[in-house]
Simulated scan of single mutants.
Amino acid sequence: MQILLVNDDGIYAPGLRAMSDVLKELGDVTVVAPLVEQSGVGHRITYLHPIMAREIKDETGRYGWAVDGSPADCTKMGVLEFCPRRPDLIVSGINSGANVGINVLYSGTVAAAIEGAFFGINSIAVSLAQGTPPDYHAAGKRAVALIRQILNREERQGMLWNINFPDTTEAGPKGVKVCSMAIRRHTDTVEKRIDPRGRPYYWSGLDPLRNHSLEPGTDVCELTNGYATVTPLHFDLTDRGAAGAWESIPLSFPC
C-alpha cells in the first residue's frame, strides 16, 4: 500500500514523526509537510506564486519533503509529484490539538485530508488533545488500529474520516465512539491585552473545546468524556433540504 502522510504542524512536528513510524506497518510512506506550521489556515491553496519544496533527510536517509505552502498544497504535491505511485491512503496528522466541532472547518489538518478525498482517495485526519503531555507514539499505534478497521470495512473510495484522541492518560481512552461533528458553539471570545507601548492586541480561539455546547453523541462531548472519536465527513456543503424546497419556486431577474 502506498501511503501519503501530511500535516499542518510542519515537517519537524513530533506527531508527524510518530505517525510516520507506525504507518510503516501498513505500507510505504511518503511524507510531505509544510516547511513551517500552518495551523488554522483551513483549505487555503497557493496559486499566486510558485510553490517551493526541498527534501528533508534524517539519520536514516530520506525523511520527506518540506513544502513552502499550505496543508492542502502538501496533499496536492504529494499526489501529483512526490509519491512514487498514486496513494492508496492519505493520512493527515498527528495534529497537536483536537480538531472537533466547528473547528473542523478551520483546521489545516482536516483540509489536507479533504484535499485527498477530492482525488477520490480514502483520507483520514488524526488529532490528539493537548490537555496533558502528549504521547504521540501511543496515539499513532491506536490510530493505525482504527485505520485498519476502517479500510477493512469501508468498500467505497474517496471517503473522509476525522479521528480524535482525548488527553493522554496512563489508562488511555475509555473506548471509541463513532459520532457526529458538533455544530453548536455557545460562546466565542477575544481576549484583549495591552503591549508595553500601551497598544492593544488580541488573542482569539484560546479554548475552542469549551466554546462548544456539550451535545450528547457529538465529537466534542465524547472527547471531553475521555473517548476517542471517529467521525465520517463529507465536503459537499449543499443544504439539500433547502435546495429541494426551492426547486419548485420560480426565481427570475427583474424586468
Rank of each mutant, 00 (worst) to 15 (best):
V220G: 01
G205L: 05
P200S: 06
Y201V: 00
H212Q: 01
M181I: 12
L206K: 07
L223Y: 03
T224N: 06
I183F: 05
P173G: 03
W203Y: 11
S204G: 09
D188L: 14
E170K: 14
T218W: 00
C221F: 15
G198H: 04
T187F: 07
G217N: 00
I194Q: 08
T218N: 02
W203M: 13
D207S: 10
L223N: 08
T169S: 09
R199G: 05
T168Y: 04
R185P: 04
T168P: 08
M181S: 03
P216N: 00
C221I: 02
P196Q: 10
G175K: 02
E191H: 15
L214D: 07
T187I: 14
L223R: 04
L209Y: 00
R210N: 15
W203Q: 12
T224G: 10
V190K: 14
R193Q: 15
T168V: 00
R199A: 13
G217V: 01
K177Q: 10
P200R: 02
G217C: 04
E215K: 15
V176P: 01
R184H: 13
E191Q: 14
R193C: 04
L214N: 09
D207G: 04
T187L: 04
H186S: 11
W203P: 01
G198S: 06
C179G: 03
G226T: 03
D188R: 14
L206T: 06
V178H: 11
D195W: 00
K192L: 09
H186M: 08
D219P: 02
N211C: 10
R210V: 05
E215R: 02
T218A: 03
P196K: 14
E222T: 03
D195A: 11
G175M: 00
D207P: 02
Y202S: 09
E191K: 11
N225G: 05
L206C: 08
D195F: 06
W203T: 15
Y202G: 07
A182H: 05
E222M: 09
N225C: 09
L206G: 04
E191T: 15
R185S: 06
E222N: 13
S213P: 04
P216E: 00
T187N: 09
N225W: 07
R210Y: 10
R193T: 05
R210D: 15
G226A: 06
S204C: 06
P216G: 02
L209K: 05
K192T: 10
G205D: 13
D195H: 02
L223H: 10
K174V: 02
A171N: 11
E222D: 14
S213I: 06
H186A: 09
V220A: 09
K192Q: 12
T224S: 05
S204E: 09
E170Q: 14
T169F: 06
G175S: 01
I183L: 12
N225A: 12
M181L: 13
A171R: 08
H186D: 12
I183Q: 12
P216K: 02
D207N: 01
I183V: 08
G172F: 09
H212K: 05
L223E: 08
V220H: 01
I194K: 13
T187V: 03
P208N: 03
P173V: 03
S213F: 13
K174G: 03
R197Y: 14
P200F: 08
L206S: 09
R199Q: 14
S204W: 08
V220R: 03
R185Y: 00
V190Y: 12
T169P: 04
G205T: 01
D207A: 14
S213K: 14
V178E: 13
K174A: 08
S204K: 15
V220F: 07
T189L: 12
R193Y: 15
